[in-house]
Design a protein around this nucleic acid. Structure first.
Lengths: 108, 108
DNA sequence: TCCCTTCGCTACATTTACTGTAGCGATACG
DNA sequence: CGTATCGCTACAGTAAATGTAGCGAAGGGA
């Protein structure tokens, strides 16, 4: 990748705190969802769009590019899939699934 | 404004999948960052703003309201702080910190 | 060859979300 | 009273996301 000086620099990445860069990347719309949908299977760009509730291809493409630059996703003959690094990232918030179930049963 | 019927309903929460609602909530700008900044201490709204790189009070207030409605954050005499549920949520992606360090040392 | 489909990806006008600045009413301290 | 901070909001400007359409390339019949 020739890569022209990371166009998508992150907000709040002051003081070389990579966690801020990561939180910023993950905090963009559809990013978490994309990682979630790719968690166990590769998807073509159009299958991904279907999985993501018909999100617009414009933004999906933007996010996929960011995720590829970050090294979390790659494009193969089977479509988009998580890289090894991407799978590691997913593992770090995989417990979110069980939490979400518990959360949905909360009082309010 | 007397509250127009839960304006902040989530995208992609079809088929009663709470994980989608959660991913949508967490995928809004500043949400992850706010949870991060409150991870171990309560902050006043203005201290939070400083911690969040001078994000606009408008959006911080919006996010804080969402997070309070979700039951993750509460407002006390010490300022905003995570609820028990909020702390649980934070725990689920706390490993992100170590991952971010590793990520920042990756090849490209 | 031509037609048809699907692929990844992009253009572009519209709509929505966020930013930045200012300032409100309430509370507290002198 | 003046001043300072609190949580929170108004509002105009800017940036980001949406929705629709369609591109060029690759593959499969007929």
């Amino acid at each position: 990748m020739p890569k022209p000086a990371t166009k998508h620099s992150v907000r709040g990445s002051r003081a070389g705190r990579p966690i801020m860069a990561l939180l910023d990347l993950l905090g963009r719309r559809w990013t978490l969802r994309i990682l979630w949908e790719l968690r166990e299977t590769a998807l073509t760009s159009r299958a991904l769009r279907t999985a993501c509730d018909e999100a617009s291809p414009t933004i999906l493409q933007t996010r996929l590019t960011e995720l590829r630059e970050a090294g979390f996703v790659e494009l193969t003959d089977d479509g988009y899939r998580l890289t090894g690094l991407g799978k590691e990232l997913f593992q770090t918030f995989a417990p979110l699934h069980r939490f979400a179930e518990r959360w949905s049963r909360r009082g309010s």
